[in-house]
């Protein structure tokens, strides 16, 4: 199969999972670059130029809260999942679970 075609469809399938992963990881406060790293390690590779604006958007939607930490020499903006964000995360996870069920039903149906 065409590589571009494959990566295009995979990207389409994964779109939205980054939001889910961010909300889940940011239950513990984190800042931009560290989050980029942990997302990568958790298996959600994302570009820096996608993540940073995304954090701002989620903050604007009141799904994340932020606070500046100036204790260290380099000031960092820490984000943490808000109660609204937590609710959204639970809804997303629930939907993900029902998707998983739906997909496995689909596969079992095909194998018979």
């Amino acid at each position: 199969m065409d590589d571009d075609l494959l990566s295009g469809h995979l990207q389409e399938l994964r779109r939205g999972t980054v939001v889910l992963a961010c909300l889940a990881l940011l239950r513990r406060p984190g800042y931009g670059y560290a989050l980029l790293e942990s997302l990568d390690q958790a298996g959600f590779p994302v570009e820096a130029n996608t993540l940073y604006p995304l954090l701002r958007r989620l903050e604007k939607q009141k799904l994340l809260e932020s606070v500046w930490n100036t204790d260290e020499s380099r000031p960092r903006k820490f984000y943490v999942t808000s109660p609204d964000g937590e609710r959204l995360l639970r809804a997303l996870l629930e939907d993900w679970n029902s998707l998983t069920t739906a997909i496995s039903t689909l596969r079992e149906g095909n194998e018979q």
Binding site: Y31, G32, L36, A48, Y52, R74
Partner: peptide
């Protein structure tokens, strides 16, 4: 945004 962007660049 400047503060955060500079921090992120420096971290990277």
């Amino acid at each position: 945004i400047e503060r955060e962007l500079r921090g992120s660049i420096a971290d990277a």
